[in-house]
Nucleic acid binder design. Structure first.
Lengths: 366, 366
DNA sequence: GTCGTTGCTGGTAGCGCTGTCAACGTTCCT
DNA sequence: AGGAACGTTGACAGCGCTACCAGCAACGAC
C-alpha cells in the first residue's frame, strides 16, 4: 500500500477520497460545488472528511486553481477609530466564509497604496477593498485591469472602478453647517487635522456652505497635516480663537478634535454652547456621553465595512449587486453642544445621549 | 521554443533564470539565500528579475516548501483601542519583510480562539502571536505541539508556551492603588467592564492592595460583562456612588470608563479631584488633555506589538532572543485627577499633560 | 432502436516552486 | 601530490490540489 500520509502527517484529499470510496477529483468537487455530486457520494465524502479531520491545503488549491481566496483590504490607518469600525464590519462579514482578509496600511500615501496594490494583484486576490477615490493614475489602471471585483469604500464619487460604498463628505459637512446656521450661529470656524482627501472634502463642504451664506472668511479655517488627536483639537482651537475671538461655533473635522475643543473651552471657562457651539464628525461613542453632550455627524462605518465585504463576496461568487454604488448617507445628531444661540442656557436634564434629535439625509440632494 | 509564459501572462522563475543564464534552482536560491550565490550570478539574477518585473508565486512556494510566510495573530477585539495600538506595532514591524499578517478576532472567547488556532495551524504558519495566557487545554496542547515560534502578548505569567511579552496587570493595578493611597485616598472604588482575564487580574491587584491596607469592601467593586464604553463608565460610577456615597476615589479598569466617570462627576457637580479622585488604565491620548487631566497607568502597547513581531520574525529566521520573556512594565502617570486629598484645589496652570510626574516600575517585585 | 442530451464520475496532466542529492571546481591541509 | 573540505551549481522529483476532457449510464425524442 502506497504512501498514506504526507510527510507532515496531514490528511490529504486523496485519503478522504479513499475512505469515501470515490476518486480524489470527486472529493475535491464536494468542497467546491457539492450540488454536482449525487446525494450518496456527497454524504460519504462529508463523513469521511469529518472522520479524518480533513483541512484543505490552501496553497495547493491556490496553485492549481490559479486564484486565491484572499480579500485584500487597503486602508490608510490602523490608529484611526474610524477605520477600526470599518474593519470590524469587514471581518464580521467575512467570518465563517471561505475568504480570508489580507490587510495593508497605506499610511495615507497614494504611492504606498500603489506599491501595495501591485503586491496584492500579483497574488491574484479574489477581491479587493480600497479606501477612497483618489488613487494614482497607475493604481487606477491596475484596478481597472484587475480581474476581480473591487469595492471602493468611505466615500462616493463619479466613475467607480467597480463597486462603491460610502457617503458624501461634502454634503455631510454642508448639513452640519446648515444645522449650525439653523441654530442661529454665524461665525463658524473649521478645525481640521491630517487633511486626507475626505477631510478635505468636508472642508470644501464647509467653505461652500459658508460662501452660500456670504459668511466665509479664510481666517476661520485652521488646519494642519499633523495626525489628529484630542490634544491637537485644543491647540488648533487656541489658534482659531487667537485669529477670531468673536467665534460663534466650531465645526471639527472629527470627534477627537471636537473633544479637544470642548476641553479647551472648559480650561478657558468658555460656556458651551452658550458662548461657543461645537459640532464634530463621525459620532463616536463618547460624544453622547460628554458634558455637554456633543453634536456630531453620524456615519455608518461598521455598516460600510460589513456591506462592502458582503457585496464583494457576493460579486466574487458571481452574484453582482443590482446597485453597485451605495450611498449610506449620514445623520446630523443634534445634541447640547450646538443648541440654539441666545436661548437661555438650559443645563443637561439627566443623562447622556438622551432624546437626540436626528436629521437623516442621504448624501445626494433630493 | 517551449512555453514562455504561464497562462495568466505572469513571469515565472524559469523566465528569470533563462534571462540570467542560470538554472531555475539557482534563481530560486537568489530569493531565499542570496549569499549562497557567487557575486556574478547574484547580480545577473537580480537584474533579470528586475527587468522582467518578477513577483514570486507565494502559493507555489508554500506548496513546495511546506510552509507559509504567514504570521497568524489572534486578538480578542478589533474595537478596543488597546489592540489597535498593538496591531499597529505588529504591522509596522512586519512591513517590508517577507512575512504577511493574518489577523483573527476571538471575540474574547477561548473556544473561538481554539477553533481559529486549529484553522491557523493547519496552514502551517511561520509564526503565531496569541493574546494572553488563558488558553483552553486543547489550545495549549496545540500551541506546544506547533512547530513554529509563538509569542504570547499583553501580559506575562508563568509557563510561557514559547516567548512572552507584556506586563503584570496585577502589579500595575497595585501600583495605581498605592499611588492613590500615597495621595491620601482611602475609600477607593473599582469600576470594570468586559472583565476579560487581564481586567480580572487588575481587579485582583486592586483587591490585594486594598486588603493589604485593610480597606477592602466588596461593595466598592462594580463590574459588568458588558463591553466597555465611556457611557458605561458613567453608569457604573452611578451604581458605585449609590452603594458608597462617601467614596474618595475610583480606579477604572480602562480609560474609557475613566472618561465616563469624569463626565458623570461633571454632570453631578462633583469636583475632581477635590471630592473624588479618578485613575484610569492604559493612558490613551485624551487622558492628558481632559479637564482636569486624568491620571492613568501607561502601558506600552505599540512597543509590545512591535517587539512581539520583531522577536517572532527573528525566531522564525533562526535567531531566538536570549530573553524569551519580556516584561515591558508600566508607569503610573500622575495627573490632576488624583492629586492629593485635602490639598487646596490648585487648578490647571496651563495646558494639557504638562509636567507629568512618572513612576516607572517593572511588573515584577524588586 | 438510434441518436442526442444530461448528470455524474474519473484519468491525466500540470500549477510554479523548492528539497534533496549529486557533481563540479577550487582551495587548503597533511 | 593526494585527499578532504568547501563553495557553488544543477537535475530531478514532487508538494496537494484542480482544470480539462473523456467516459459512462440513464433517459427522452424521433
Amino acid at each position: 500500500m502506497g504512501r498514506k500520509r504526507t510527510k507532515s502527517g496531514k490528511i490529504r484529499l486523496a485519503e478522504v477520497a479513499e475512505l469515501a470510496g470515490v476518486s480524489p477529483i470527486t472529493a475535491s468537487r464536494f468542497f467546491r460545488n457539492p450540488e454536482a455530486l449525487s446525494v450518496a457520494k456527497r454524504t460519504r465524502v462529508e463523513s469521511a472528511a469529518k472522520e479524518l479531520g480533513y483541512v484543505p491545503n490552501l496553497a495547493a488549491r491556490a496553485l492549481a486553481s490559479q486564484r486565491t481566496e484572499v480579500i485584500g483590504v487597503l486602508i490608510p490607518s490602523l490608529t484611526n477609530n474610524v477605520f477600526s469600525d470599518v474593519l470590524r464590519g469587514i471581518y464580521d462579514a467575512s467570518e465563517g466564509g471561505r475568504y480570508s482578509i489580507q490587510l495593508s496600511n497605506t499610511r495615507y500615501s497614494i504611492l504606498q497604496e500603489e506599491k501595495l496594490l501591485r503586491l496584492f494583484l500579483a497574488q491574484k486576490p479574489a477581491g479587493l477593498i480600497v479606501t477612497g477615490i483618489d488613487q494614482t493614475e497607475e493604481s487606477r489602471a491596475m484596478l481597472e485591469a484587475a480581474d476581480c471585483p473591487i469595492v471602493q469604500i468611505m466615500e462616493i464619487g463619479p466613475n467607480p472602478v467597480d463597486m462603491m460604498i460610502g457617503f458624501s463628505h461634502y454634503e455631510a459637512a454642508r448639513a452640519a453647517i446648515a444645522h449650525l446656521f439653523g441654530q442661529g450661529h454665524r461665525k463658524v470656524g473649521f478645525v481640521g487635522a491630517r487633511m486626507d482627501p475626505r477631510v478635505q472634502r468636508r472642508l470644501d463642504g464647509y467653505v461652500s456652505a459658508m460662501k452660500d451664506a456670504s459668511l466665509f472668511e479664510q481666517r476661520l479655517v485652521v488646519t494642519t497635516a499633523t495626525p489628529t488627536s484630542v490634544t491637537l483639537g485644543g491647540a488648533l482651537f487656541t489658534d482659531l480663537l487667537a485669529r477670531e475671538p468673536d467665534l460663534d461655533a466650531v465645526f471639527c473635522a472629527n470627534d477627537d478634535l471636537a473633544l479637544g475643543v470642548l476641553f479647551e473651552c472648559r480650561r478657558r471657562e468658555i460656556a458651551v454652547p452658550e458662548q461657543i457651539a461645537i459640532v464634530g464628525f463621525n459620532d463616536l461613542e463618547f460624544m453622547a456621553s460628554a458634558v455637554p453632550t456633543l453634536t456630531s455627524v453620524r456615519t455608518n462605518r461598521y455598516e460600510m465595512g460589513r456591506t462592502a465585504a458582503t457585496m464583494l463576496i457576493e460579486a466574487i461568487d458571481g452574484r453582482r449587486p443590482e446597485q453597485p454604488v451605495l450611498d449610506l448617507g449620514f445623520k446630523v445628531i443634534e445634541r447640547q453642544s450646538s443648541s440654539a444661540r441666545r436661548s437661555d442656557s438650559r443645563p443637561a436634564a439627566s443623562g447622556a445621549g438622551t432624546a437626540n434629535k436626528m436629521v437623516a439625509l442621504p448624501s445626494s440632494h433630493d
